[in-house]
Amino acid sequence: MSPPPATSQKVKHDVKKKKNLAKMRAREQQKSVQKMEQKNNAVTFEIIFAGRSNVGKSTLLNKLTGQNVRTGKRPGVTLKPIHLYFDDFLITDMPGFGFMSGVTKEKAEDVKNNIVRYIEDHAGRIKMAVQVIDGPAFLEIVERWDARDEIPIDLELHSFLLEMNILPVVAVNKMDKVKEEEINDMLDQIALKFGYAAPWKESGLLLAPVSARDDQIRPLTSTLKNEIHKMRRDDLFKYFR
Protein backbone atom coordinates (compact mmCIF):
# COMPACT_ATOMS: atom_id res chain seq x y z
CA MET A 1 0.00 0.00 0.00
CA SER A 2 1.46 3.38 -1.07
CA PRO A 3 1.90 6.13 1.57
CA PRO A 4 -0.52 9.07 1.44
CA PRO A 5 0.64 11.93 -0.83
CA ALA A 6 1.24 14.22 2.13
CA THR A 7 3.53 11.67 3.81
CA SER A 8 5.43 11.07 0.58
CA GLN A 9 6.02 14.81 0.16
CA LYS A 10 7.29 15.07 3.74
CA VAL A 11 9.75 12.21 3.17
CA LYS A 12 11.08 13.88 0.02
CA HIS A 13 11.34 17.20 1.87
CA ASP A 14 13.28 15.59 4.74
CA VAL A 15 15.67 13.84 2.34
CA LYS A 16 16.31 17.08 0.47
CA LYS A 17 16.85 18.93 3.74
CA LYS A 18 19.44 16.36 4.90
CA LYS A 19 21.27 16.59 1.58
CA ASN A 20 21.36 20.39 1.80
CA LEU A 21 22.64 20.25 5.38
CA ALA A 22 25.34 17.78 4.33
CA LYS A 23 26.42 20.06 1.47
CA MET A 24 26.48 23.06 3.80
CA ARG A 25 28.62 21.22 6.36
CA ALA A 26 30.98 20.08 3.60
CA ARG A 27 31.37 23.68 2.37
CA GLU A 28 31.99 24.94 5.91
CA GLN A 29 34.57 22.21 6.49
CA GLN A 30 36.31 23.08 3.24
CA LYS A 31 36.39 26.76 4.21
CA SER A 32 37.84 25.82 7.60
CA VAL A 33 40.56 23.70 5.98
CA GLN A 34 41.41 26.46 3.52
CA LYS A 35 41.57 29.04 6.32
CA MET A 36 43.90 26.77 8.31
CA GLU A 37 46.10 26.25 5.26
CA GLN A 38 46.33 30.02 4.77
CA LYS A 39 47.39 30.45 8.40
CA ASN A 40 50.00 27.72 8.11
CA ASN A 41 51.37 29.09 4.85
CA ALA A 42 51.76 32.53 6.48
CA VAL A 43 53.90 31.22 9.38
CA THR A 44 57.59 32.12 9.20
CA PHE A 45 58.52 31.91 12.89
CA GLU A 46 57.41 29.15 15.23
CA ILE A 47 58.18 28.32 18.85
CA ILE A 48 57.20 24.92 20.17
CA PHE A 49 56.67 23.87 23.79
CA ALA A 50 57.73 20.27 24.38
CA GLY A 51 58.37 17.99 27.31
CA ARG A 52 57.09 15.12 29.41
CA SER A 53 53.45 14.84 30.39
CA ASN A 54 52.40 16.76 33.48
CA VAL A 55 55.45 19.07 33.68
CA GLY A 56 53.27 22.19 33.31
CA LYS A 57 53.79 23.02 29.61
CA SER A 58 50.27 24.26 28.96
CA THR A 59 50.07 26.22 32.22
CA LEU A 60 53.41 27.87 31.49
CA LEU A 61 52.25 28.74 27.98
CA ASN A 62 49.07 30.29 29.38
CA LYS A 63 51.09 32.44 31.78
CA LEU A 64 53.51 33.48 29.05
CA THR A 65 50.94 34.50 26.42
CA GLY A 66 47.76 35.19 28.36
CA GLN A 67 45.98 32.76 26.02
CA ASN A 68 43.71 29.97 27.22
CA VAL A 69 45.40 26.69 26.34
CA ARG A 70 43.64 23.65 27.76
CA THR A 71 45.29 22.19 30.85
CA GLY A 72 44.50 19.26 33.09
CA LYS A 73 45.71 17.40 36.17
CA ARG A 74 45.70 14.05 34.37
CA PRO A 75 48.95 13.30 32.47
CA GLY A 76 48.50 13.15 28.72
CA VAL A 77 45.59 15.57 28.33
CA THR A 78 47.17 17.09 25.23
CA LEU A 79 47.39 14.35 22.58
CA LYS A 80 47.65 16.58 19.50
CA PRO A 81 49.51 19.86 18.86
CA ILE A 82 47.60 22.96 19.94
CA HIS A 83 48.33 26.05 17.87
CA LEU A 84 48.26 29.74 18.78
CA TYR A 85 48.48 31.91 15.65
CA PHE A 86 49.71 35.52 15.72
CA ASP A 87 50.04 36.76 12.12
CA ASP A 88 53.22 35.04 10.83
CA PHE A 89 54.14 33.90 14.35
CA LEU A 90 53.02 30.54 15.72
CA ILE A 91 53.33 29.01 19.18
CA THR A 92 52.64 25.29 19.37
CA ASP A 93 51.94 23.28 22.50
CA MET A 94 53.16 19.78 21.68
CA PRO A 95 51.67 16.66 23.27
CA GLY A 96 53.46 15.46 26.37
CA PHE A 97 55.55 12.32 26.02
CA GLY A 98 56.28 9.57 28.51
CA PHE A 99 53.66 8.29 30.96
CA MET A 100 50.06 9.15 30.06
CA SER A 101 47.18 8.13 32.30
CA GLY A 102 44.64 5.98 30.48
CA VAL A 103 46.75 5.82 27.30
CA THR A 104 48.18 2.54 25.95
CA LYS A 105 51.92 2.12 25.37
CA GLU A 106 51.25 1.89 21.64
CA LYS A 107 49.38 5.20 21.67
CA ALA A 108 52.09 6.84 23.77
CA GLU A 109 54.71 5.64 21.27
CA ASP A 110 52.59 7.03 18.41
CA VAL A 111 52.46 10.40 20.18
CA LYS A 112 56.26 10.45 20.52
CA ASN A 113 56.72 9.52 16.85
CA ASN A 114 54.24 12.22 15.82
CA ILE A 115 56.22 14.81 17.78
CA VAL A 116 59.40 13.83 15.93
CA ARG A 117 57.56 13.88 12.60
CA TYR A 118 56.06 17.31 13.31
CA ILE A 119 59.46 18.78 14.16
CA GLU A 120 61.03 17.26 11.06
CA ASP A 121 58.22 18.51 8.80
CA HIS A 122 58.35 22.08 10.15
CA ALA A 123 62.03 22.45 11.08
CA GLY A 124 62.41 25.27 8.56
CA ARG A 125 60.08 27.54 10.48
CA ILE A 126 60.63 26.29 14.06
CA LYS A 127 63.24 28.71 15.37
CA MET A 128 63.08 27.85 19.06
CA ALA A 129 61.83 25.11 21.35
CA VAL A 130 60.95 25.57 24.99
CA GLN A 131 61.72 22.22 26.56
CA VAL A 132 59.87 22.13 29.87
CA ILE A 133 61.12 19.83 32.62
CA ASP A 134 59.96 19.15 36.17
CA GLY A 135 62.93 20.57 38.09
CA PRO A 136 62.55 18.65 41.37
CA ALA A 137 61.91 15.32 39.58
CA PHE A 138 64.28 15.63 36.61
CA LEU A 139 67.51 14.32 38.15
CA GLU A 140 65.76 11.32 39.67
CA ILE A 141 64.11 10.49 36.30
CA VAL A 142 67.44 10.70 34.45
CA GLU A 143 69.20 8.53 37.04
CA ARG A 144 66.43 5.95 36.73
CA TRP A 145 66.98 5.77 32.96
CA ASP A 146 70.76 5.69 33.43
CA ALA A 147 70.37 2.70 35.75
CA ARG A 148 68.66 0.84 32.89
CA ASP A 149 71.50 1.90 30.57
CA GLU A 150 69.00 3.86 28.45
CA ILE A 151 69.08 7.43 27.15
CA PRO A 152 66.38 9.52 28.87
CA ILE A 153 63.78 10.86 26.44
CA ASP A 154 64.42 14.42 27.66
CA LEU A 155 68.09 14.27 26.69
CA GLU A 156 67.27 12.52 23.43
CA LEU A 157 64.81 15.29 22.54
CA HIS A 158 67.38 17.97 23.36
CA SER A 159 69.97 16.38 21.08
CA PHE A 160 67.38 15.99 18.33
CA LEU A 161 66.47 19.68 18.51
CA LEU A 162 70.12 20.66 18.17
CA GLU A 163 70.51 18.32 15.19
CA MET A 164 67.54 20.04 13.54
CA ASN A 165 69.18 23.46 14.14
CA ILE A 166 66.41 24.46 16.54
CA LEU A 167 67.49 26.51 19.55
CA PRO A 168 66.39 24.77 22.77
CA VAL A 169 65.52 26.73 25.90
CA VAL A 170 65.12 24.50 28.96
CA ALA A 171 62.40 25.82 31.27
CA VAL A 172 62.99 24.25 34.68
CA ASN A 173 59.49 24.34 36.13
CA LYS A 174 58.14 23.83 39.67
CA MET A 175 61.02 25.74 41.27
CA ASP A 176 58.66 26.75 44.08
CA LYS A 177 59.27 23.23 45.46
CA VAL A 178 63.04 23.74 45.69
CA LYS A 179 64.78 25.31 48.69
CA GLU A 180 66.58 28.55 47.90
CA GLU A 181 69.97 27.25 49.03
CA GLU A 182 69.66 24.17 46.78
CA ILE A 183 68.72 25.91 43.53
CA ASN A 184 72.14 26.60 42.02
CA ASP A 185 73.48 23.14 42.82
CA MET A 186 70.40 21.53 41.28
CA LEU A 187 70.69 23.66 38.13
CA ASP A 188 74.40 22.78 37.88
CA GLN A 189 73.48 19.09 38.02
CA ILE A 190 70.80 19.56 35.37
CA ALA A 191 73.29 21.30 33.06
CA LEU A 192 75.71 18.39 33.51
CA LYS A 193 73.01 15.86 32.64
CA PHE A 194 72.31 17.74 29.41
CA GLY A 195 76.01 17.47 28.56
CA TYR A 196 77.06 21.00 29.48
CA ALA A 197 79.61 22.15 32.05
CA ALA A 198 78.91 23.68 35.44
CA PRO A 199 78.30 26.33 36.65
CA TRP A 200 75.04 26.47 34.72
CA LYS A 201 75.12 30.23 34.14
CA GLU A 202 78.35 29.84 32.17
CA SER A 203 77.57 26.49 30.54
CA GLY A 204 76.05 27.72 27.29
CA LEU A 205 72.82 25.91 28.07
CA LEU A 206 69.82 28.24 28.10
CA LEU A 207 68.22 27.39 31.43
CA ALA A 208 65.20 29.31 32.74
CA PRO A 209 64.16 28.38 36.30
CA VAL A 210 60.44 29.13 36.63
CA SER A 211 57.31 28.38 38.63
CA ALA A 212 54.22 28.52 36.42
CA ARG A 213 51.94 27.89 39.37
CA ASP A 214 53.24 30.98 41.21
CA ASP A 215 53.38 33.08 38.04
CA GLN A 216 57.17 33.34 38.35
CA ILE A 217 58.12 33.12 34.66
CA ARG A 218 60.32 36.20 34.13
CA PRO A 219 63.53 34.14 33.54
CA LEU A 220 61.82 32.41 30.61
CA THR A 221 60.32 35.60 29.20
CA SER A 222 63.69 37.36 29.38
CA THR A 223 65.52 34.45 27.75
CA LEU A 224 63.02 34.17 24.91
CA LYS A 225 63.06 37.90 24.23
CA ASN A 226 66.84 38.01 24.30
CA GLU A 227 67.11 35.20 21.73
CA ILE A 228 64.29 36.63 19.59
CA HIS A 229 66.12 39.97 19.62
CA LYS A 230 69.22 38.23 18.24
CA MET A 231 67.02 36.94 15.43
CA ARG A 232 65.84 40.51 14.74
CA ARG A 233 62.21 39.85 15.54
CA ASP A 234 61.56 42.36 18.32
CA ASP A 235 58.08 42.78 16.84
CA LEU A 236 57.15 39.48 18.52
CA PHE A 237 57.70 40.84 22.03
CA LYS A 238 54.10 42.11 22.15
CA TYR A 239 52.77 38.55 22.20
CA PHE A 240 54.40 37.81 25.55
CA ARG A 241 53.05 39.09 28.86
Results as ranks from 00 to 15, higher is better:
K16H: 09
K18R: 13
L21R: 12
R25K: 12
N41V: 04
A42Y: 01
I48A: 02
I48T: 06
R52A: 10
S53Y: 02
K57C: 02
K57E: 03
S58N: 06
S58D: 01
T59C: 08
L60G: 01
T65A: 10
T71Q: 05
T78Q: 10
L79A: 08
H83K: 15
L84V: 12
D87S: 13
D88A: 04
L90I: 04
T92Q: 05
T92F: 03
G102Q: 11
D110P: 01
I115K: 05
I126R: 08
A129T: 15
V130A: 06
Q131V: 15
P136V: 09
A137H: 10
E140T: 13
E140W: 09
R144K: 14
W145A: 15
D149C: 06
E150H: 13
I151Y: 05
D154V: 07
L155M: 14
L157V: 14
L162P: 00
L162I: 14
E163W: 01
M164C: 09
A171T: 04
K179V: 00
E180D: 13
E181Q: 12
E182I: 02
D185R: 12
M186W: 08
I190A: 07
G195Q: 07
Y196H: 13
W200P: 01
V210Q: 05
V210E: 10
S211C: 15
A212L: 04
D214L: 13
D215Y: 05
R218I: 06
T221E: 12
K230F: 08
K230M: 04
D234H: 08
D234G: 07
F240E: 00
